[in-house]
Amino acid sequence: MAIQPPQNTPSDLTFLLGQIDGKVTGIAQTLTAMDTRAQNHEDRILKLEAHDAVRSTYVPRFEAVERKVGELESVQDQGRGWLQAGAAVKAMIGMGIAVIGYLGWQVAVEPASPPTIEQKTVQTTTIPVEPSKVGRR
């Protein structure tokens, strides 16, 4: 945007008009940059709003998954409790056997009755017969 002074304008006024022209040009460039930046902000806000609209559908699904994970953790904690109880029971049984052994009683694990073994022998014999003698007396 170049402003040309009339032909008979004094030089100091020409200089002053040049400075004003430079400032107007700088202001126009600044306003253009501000408009571009404002448009970029507006686009970013629209994208964020669109993302939030989609996000609202994911929140209930996330809460459902979080609930299931909580249930699985509680079941896992119960399993750990049973394992700890089982370990305590095994320790008590071991201590009971140790006390009985210390008192001099012997504890043995044997079958109630010895196993019985049955053996059968089957013997077969084949006698050759002439075909002409079969069926005659």
Rank of each mutant, 00 (worst) to 15 (best):
R44Y: 12
T14H: 00
I45V: 12
V75A: 12
S11P: 00
T25I: 04
E73W: 04
F62H: 07
D43F: 10
R44E: 06
Q7N: 15
T125C: 13
K90A: 05
G101I: 01
Q119C: 04
E71D: 12
A112T: 13
A38I: 04
G79W: 02
V59G: 03
G26D: 13
I3P: 01
G79F: 03
M92D: 05
E49P: 01
Q19K: 11
E42D: 08
A87Q: 07
Q7T: 15
N40A: 15
K90S: 06
A108T: 14
Q76V: 08
E130V: 06
D43I: 08
I3V: 14
S74C: 04
V107A: 08
V54D: 15
Q84M: 02
Q76W: 09
A108P: 05
K68S: 10
L83E: 02
V24Y: 03
V24G: 00
Q7F: 13
W105G: 15
A108D: 13
W105N: 15
A88P: 01
S56C: 04
R136C: 06
D21K: 01
S132M: 11
A64Q: 11
K133P: 05
D21W: 00
I100S: 03
E42Y: 07
Q4C: 05
P111K: 06
V75P: 02
T116H: 14
Q78R: 14
I93Q: 02
Q19L: 09
I20D: 02
G18P: 00
A28I: 09
G81V: 00
K47G: 03
G81F: 00
S11Q: 10
Q78D: 14
Q7A: 15
T116E: 10
S74N: 07
A85F: 03
L46A: 05
G104M: 15
M95N: 07
E118I: 05
H51P: 00
V69Y: 11
K68M: 10
L72M: 14
V107W: 03
E63H: 09
P6F: 00
A53M: 12
A88F: 06
T36W: 05
A33M: 12
G26Y: 07
V109W: 07
S113A: 13
M95K: 06
K120F: 06
R61L: 12
E130F: 11
V89T: 06
A2N: 13
S11M: 02
T57P: 01
E66P: 04
A38R: 08
P111D: 07
I45F: 08
V75C: 08
A85G: 02
Q119L: 11
S56E: 09
E63R: 11
L72W: 14
I93C: 01
E118F: 03
A108K: 14
G86K: 01
L16S: 04
A88R: 03
I100T: 13
P5W: 00
Q7I: 15
R137D: 15
G81H: 00
Q84D: 11
G101M: 06
T57C: 03
D77W: 03
R136K: 09
Q119R: 11
R80A: 12
S56H: 04
V24R: 01
V89E: 04
Q84S: 10
